[in-house]
Design a protein around this nucleic acid. Structure first.
Length: 452
RNA sequence: GGCCCCUUCGUCUAGUGGUUUAGGACAUCGCCCUUUCACGGCGGCAACACGGGUUCGAAUCCCGUAGGGGUCACCA
């Protein structure tokens, strides 16, 4: 049987690193097993769901390159389905209408708090037949007493919980919308999900969902509850830990593949390998290599992964991403090739390449001062013979450069340092031979003469 | 607090009873390379939470303790 997995975010904010990793694991698993990834939007909270964040989630997934095979299905458009199932449970006596008002419930909760007892809905309407007319109600599940609910988690093994720890939880709210546990279970049944891969925070919801599966005689999928991602202070990752949404990392100059690589590697491993292409991850991902303990998000290692991915990235791809207006005559391929070797993110890549973008360079006075009159004479001499020479490749530039040094009794730094400064305006630039090849002769001449 | 989950270098992890003086990576420190900044190369520092078992033998299996996390909503 083909595997069917789903990613089911709720559109109540932008995509968080933790949910992105869940999406990645589901995506990689579907690829590895030749299955399908279903995208489902869990928008049953009328108050908090927004179409804005829904769009943001979709565009983030697309940007990352996480493609889904079905959906997005919106739960808000499937209300009838949940109500039908709720009616089945109602008619079979497995659920009941509850007419207790919010105020009444709140009172009971407060009372429980005062007495330091655990609140559990006292089942007031569980067996009552005297239903009032024209009064709001919710539908609650009849949780059985004294039963052991167990299920197998592929990562954590058999998990058991006593039904007595569970409440008669609500499955349909008074506005007719389903609650998370109900909608989620029903959809997983309806969509024939074979593997539920989600965050560990859902572990304690699973028994309730098992109850629903059982009450409908539905087949229970394989569960895999992946550990959380924590911040540096070992608490749940949040805004306090800096950039958390994918958009943030995008604007910090991270590549999609870097995000997938780093996040996947947080909790998953494949021997000693650290850097993966998308294809490699799709081919090698396995639930068996998942780690049970929570992982701390480390921006430094993430950045290291990104710098590796940038070095590996295709030149044309980077060219598209940075969307630069290069000065005419620039050897763009060589420029990018040499700049990516020294960049850890896209921002830095652009900085390094900035000498290829604007004709006029801003060189600060202090740097100018460091070049003396003697240098100027050398530079002029260098420029003259450089302009006369016809280079076919960088090797010839190197030969020419070295010969010039030899003939003029100069050391490398005597010429390379001022030349680099004049030609790029920066200390962080490619090697001098590369600079001389990247820039057109005209531009080299222009920049040197302007200095003289 | 009840229930559930987790515990190998500072961090991500390898390790599935003997091949382990516990391996790799990030970070850090030192050296080398060097035309800037980087890259790179070589090397150092650094971990099985604790206590009991089981076993000829345990990071690996069992129990307990401690610590951390999650969850207890008409949120998902």
């Amino acid at each position: 049987m083909n595997t069917r997995v789903r990613f089911a975010p709720s559109p109540t904010g932008s995509l968080h690193l933790g949910s992105v990793r869940t999406a990645i694991f589901n995506y990689l698993f579907s690829k590895q097993t030749n299955g399908s990834l279903i995208l489902r939007i869990e928008d049953t909270d009328k108050g908090r769901s927004t179409s804005h964040s829904q769009e943001e989630i979709l565009s983030s997934l697309k940007w990352l390159g996480i493609q889904w095979n079905e959906g997005p299905y919106l739960q808000s458009e499937r209300i009838e389905i949940y109500q039908n199932y709720a009616n089945i449970l109602l008619s079979e006596g497995k659920a009941y209408k509850c007419f207790s008002s919010q105020e009444e419930i709140n009172r009971i909760k407060e009372q429980a708090k005062k007495e330091k007892k655990i609140y559990k809905y006292p089942r007031i309407w569980r067996d009552r037949k005297d239903h009032p007319q024209n009064k709001d109600f919710v539908i609650r599940f009849k949780t059985p007493d004294n039963k052991i609910i167990d299920f197998k988690d592929t990562l954590r093994g058999k998990i058991e919980i006593e039904s007595n720890n569970l409440d008669d939880f609500i499955i349909i709210k008074s506005d007719g919308f389903p609650t998370y546990n109900f909608a989620s279970a029903i959809d997983d049944i309806e969509m024939k999900i074979t593997n539920v891969i989600r965050g560990e925070d859902h572990l304690s919801n699973t028994p309730k969902q098992i109850l629903i599966y059982n009450s409908l005689n539905a087949k229970i999928p394989d569960f895999t509850h992946v550990s959380m991602i924590l911040g540096k202070d070992k608490t749940k990752l949040s805004k306090r830990h800096g950039a958390e949404s994918i958009d943030n990392f995008k604007s910090m100059g991270f590549l999609p593949v870097s995000i997938i690589n780093y996040l996947a590697r947080l909790g998953w491993s494949f021997g000693d390998q650290e850097i993966f292409s998308l294809n490699e991850m799709e081919a090698n991902f396995s639930l068996d290599n998942l780690n049970k303990s929570p992982a701390i998000f480390d921006l430094e290692k993430f950045t290291w992964v990104n710098s590796n991915q940038i070095k590996k990235a295709d030149t044309n791809y980077l060219k598209e991403l940075i969307n630069f207006k290069f000065i005419e005559g620039i050897d763009i391929d060589l420029a990018i090739l040499s700049a990516k070797e020294k960049s850890k993110d896209l921002i830095q890549l652009k900085e390094v390449l900035s000498f290829c973008e604007t004709k006029e360079l801003n060189i600060d006075d202090k740097s100018i001062e460091s070049i003396n009159d003697c240098d100027k004479k050398i530079l002029e001499k260098f420029l003259n013979s450089f302009m006369d020479y016809n280079f076919k490749n960088m090797d010839e530039i190197e030969d020419f450069f070295k010969n010039f040094l030899l003939n003029n009794n100069l050391k490398m730094k005597n010429l390379a340092f001022p030349l680099r400064l004049i030609l790029t305006g920066s200390k962080n630039s490619p090697g001098i031979y590369q600079i001389l090849k990247i820039l057109s002769k005209e531009l080299i001449s222009y920049r040197v003469k302007r200095f003289l």
